Amino acid sequence: MTPDELEAARDRLVPDVVAGGLSVLFCGINPGLMSAATGHHFARPGNRFWPVLHLSGFTPRRLAPAEQDELLTYGLGITNVVARATARADELGDEEFRAGGELLRAKVERLRPRWLAVAGVTAYRTAFGDRAARIGPQERTIGDTRIWALPNPSGLNAHWTAQTMAEEYGRLRAAAEADADPV
């Protein structure tokens, strides 16, 4: 993809991959230009979302971004805090994150996933006004939906390796499976 093709994707929207009653609704910060250009979430080759999803046991094999709709068969979906595409998340302001948080709350109230997993704790903090949030399960809920803040899978997030990210995603998977099992 050429730089001009990527730039032409700026501000485009990438459709959500959602359904009612999902086990986990993953939530990115916002689409990057590669995602907007292809129409597929987490499409940049250096993004670790798809490998980590598989390494953590959410999917039986590593899916390609173009196979994102297959997530629904596993009770998983994808949305974003902010819908518009940018080259970098730091192009978004706090007000846009707060507005995105309100839209996300409404979406979660309508779809009622068991877990909302926000992939980016800083985005979660801003969107939900929770400056003390840390990676892991949150005390806040949206209706009956529990929230988990996950590390951002961007290749720019050097604090987390694919393996340490997979361990955190795996903790969420175990919690989601425990919620699904009748007692």
Rank of each mutant, 00 (worst) to 15 (best):
E96K: 13
D69G: 06
G120L: 07
A87H: 12
E5W: 08
A43C: 04
F97I: 10
E109H: 14
L53V: 11
G101I: 07
A9D: 01
A87S: 13
G120A: 04
V17L: 08
A85K: 10
S35T: 07
E70M: 12
E91C: 13
A83E: 13
G21W: 11
D130I: 05
R134M: 09
A64R: 15
A83P: 00
A83G: 11
D144M: 12
W50V: 05
V121N: 12
C27E: 02
T141G: 00
V121R: 11
A132K: 14
D130W: 03
E7V: 09
W50F: 09
F58L: 05
R84H: 15
A36P: 01
G28V: 04
D144G: 12
T73L: 06
A83C: 06
A132C: 02
F26W: 08
T2N: 14
L53W: 05
G129F: 11
L63A: 02
A87D: 08
A99S: 10
L53I: 12
L22C: 04
V81P: 00
L22E: 03
G20T: 15
T79K: 13
R88E: 11
T126F: 01
V14L: 10
R131N: 04
G101T: 07
T79V: 13
A123R: 10
A66W: 06
Y124I: 05
V118F: 05
D4R: 15
R134I: 05
A123G: 15
L72W: 01
R44M: 09
